[in-house]
């Protein structure tokens, strides 16, 4: 098949485990791929081999906390766990490792995949109690329910002493002079513990305790190819391909290197797609 012009909209390489392994090492095996298993990034690879200029870091990715029980591929939005800012999150060592209430959730949910990827065995556990259950969108999977902290440690092979201490320490260091309010940064924070929980910190009053086991869930990778303002693909020698255009998540590295902006994927897909469509048809029109 031959064409006068080509628009490439093939996304990143998020479902290519071998490629992810080159970047993340063995821990990539425990990532959950939220989209289609066919997103292998072959066009991206081929473009790079043919002189397209690389942009962004290979570790850049939209990666969130998803339930460990999610399918390996294609679980999509419903595998997300929104309980994190409400409860606490610990690793296998029984320690908290990041401020769960740092900022409003839409600004922070996309950092949790990376955070969990850095933990031992790429797993973490979000713990909440009965009163907290109504404060977040119920995820697809029901939480595990436990009668004691020891039971949690046994079930998930978490360091028991540490877990008991973490919860005790957390509960003993919550400031009392604030009003719990999920609609704002309520400054209900912990004192003197590291890491702090800056907002929405309330005492974890079990039993029962409810636990969501969490894995890094990769939505899409940011590393891609450089484009110019017409969306033409830029080459390593500083020129660009006259008739090859890159759009969508294939080129997200041009804009986003780390972190995330809500709606970003849809926004670049639609705007760059329009530009590329216009430019490509203008280019092809020259042959008439």
């Amino acid at each position: 098949m031959s064409a006068k012009s080509i628009i490439i909209a093939s996304g990143g390489f998020e479902a290519n485990i071998d490629w992810l392994r080159k970047v993340w090492g063995e821990s990539a095996d425990r990532f959950i791929i939220r989209g289609s298993k066919y997103n292998k990034g072959y066009p991206l690879k081929s473009l790079l081999e043919n002189g397209a200029k690389l942009v962004g870091s290979p570790r850049g990715a939209h990666m969130i906390a998803v339930d460990e029980r999610s399918p390996k591929y294609d679980g999509g939005i419903v595998t997300r766990v929104d309980a994190i800012p409400i409860g606490i999150v610990v690793n296998k060592n029984g320690r908290r490792f990041y401020d769960e209430g740092q900022d409003i959730w839409p600004k922070r949910y996309a950092i949790w995949g990376h955070l969990i990827a850095e933990q031992q065995d790429q797993i973490a556990f979000c713990i909440v109690d009965s009163k907290m259950l109504k404060y977040f969108i119920p995820p697809m999977f029901d939480p595990f329910k436990f009668g004691s902290i020891e039971e949690i440690a046994n079930k998930f092979n978490i360091n028991r002493e540490n877990l008991i201490n973490t919860i005790k320490e957390f509960n003993n260091n919550i400031s009392r002079d604030c009003q719990f309010d999920l609609s704002a940064l309520d400054h209900c924070s912990t004192k003197n513990i590291d890491p702090p929980k800056s907002n929405w910190a309330t005492e974890l009053k079990g039993p029962p305790f409810y636990v969501y086991p969490l894995r890094p869930g990769i939505t899409f990778t940011y590393m891609g190819i450089k484009i110019n303002k017409d969306t033409r693909i830029v080459t390593n020698d500083g020129n660009y391909f006259e008739n090859a255009f890159g759009v969508g998540e294939l080129v997200s590295g041009n804009i986003l290197r780390s972190g995330y902006l809500g709606g970003f994927g849809i926004a670049i897909g639609s705007t760059l797609g329009r530009i590329a469509g216009n430019e490509a048809s203008k280019y092809v029109g020259k042959f008439d």
Binding site: I77, V78, P138
Partner: peptide
């Protein structure tokens, strides 16, 4: 419905 309720789109 539990799947739907986790998505809500």
């Amino acid at each position: 419905y539990q799947i739907c309720n986790a998505c809500r789109y």
